[in-house]
């Protein structure tokens, strides 16, 4: 009788300990998953910030370089696909398209010295460059959050808990093109 009671007690204690541990791990993973969502909204805000600045820049450039119609069309279509993109993955790839169209616009600007010295253009360019830098910073923070979460759910023994509660790997990383980082910056 006594032996049964002791066994029962040990089993109950063991179940409680395991249950407590499971809950602890799960409660640790939830905020990490939420952090990705929160950081994504930061990224999305700055992506939108840049997209919103572009029409102003395009108008200013048009005042000096009307004939560069191809580049204006490219930018308009890149902005349109940005507007249609919903998921982080789609937004990331649409943003890449906008990146390259904008980079080509800034190369074109090099041919118009008057435009380059226009204070209004310079300020707009600062705003665009600032928006791009914000994108770089926020997506760096976003990548950090994704990496932290992915690492957390894959390490033993937390991976067992992650599997039980349906925490899956998140692969919506921003990839930075190494060639682009080294491209000579257009200076004004």
């Amino acid at each position: 009788m006594k032996a049964i009671l002791i066994t029962l007690g040990v089993v109950v204690l063991g179940v409680l300990a395991i249950g407590g541990w499971l809950m602890g791990v799960r409660n640790d993973l939830v905020p990490q998953r939420e952090a990705i969502t929160a950081q994504w909204s930061q990224v999305d805000t700055v992506l939108q910030r840049r997209a919103d600045l572009i029409p102003n820049l395009v108008e200013t450039v048009k005042g000096y370089a009307k004939q560069e119609t191809q580049i204006f069309t490219d930018i308009a279509s890149a902005r349109a696909s940005m507007g249609g993109a919903r998921t982080p993955g789609e937004r990331i790839s649409a943003n890449g398209q906008l990146d390259s169209a904008l980079a080509r616009l800034l190369v074109v600007v090099e041919n118009y010295p008057q435009l380059k010295s226009n204070e209004n253009f310079l300020r707009l360019h600062d705003e665009i460059a600032g928006a791009e830098n914000r994108i770089a910073v926020e997506r760096h923070k976003y990548n950090e959050a994704v990496l932290k979460y992915n690492t957390a759910i894959e390490l033993f023994p937390a991976n067992v808990v992650a599997g039980m509660f349906g925490f899956t790997r998140n692969d919506a990383y921003f990839k930075v093109d190494p060639a682009k980082r080294e491209a000579p910056a257009v200076k004004f």
């Binding site: 204070e119 310079l122 300020r123 707009l124 360019h125 600062d126 705003e127 460059a129 600032g130």
Partner: peptide, 8 residues
């Protein structure tokens, strides 16, 4: 301190 101001 907006970016345009900082740049200028």
């Amino acid at each position: 301190l907006p970016d345009g101001f900082a740049g200028s």
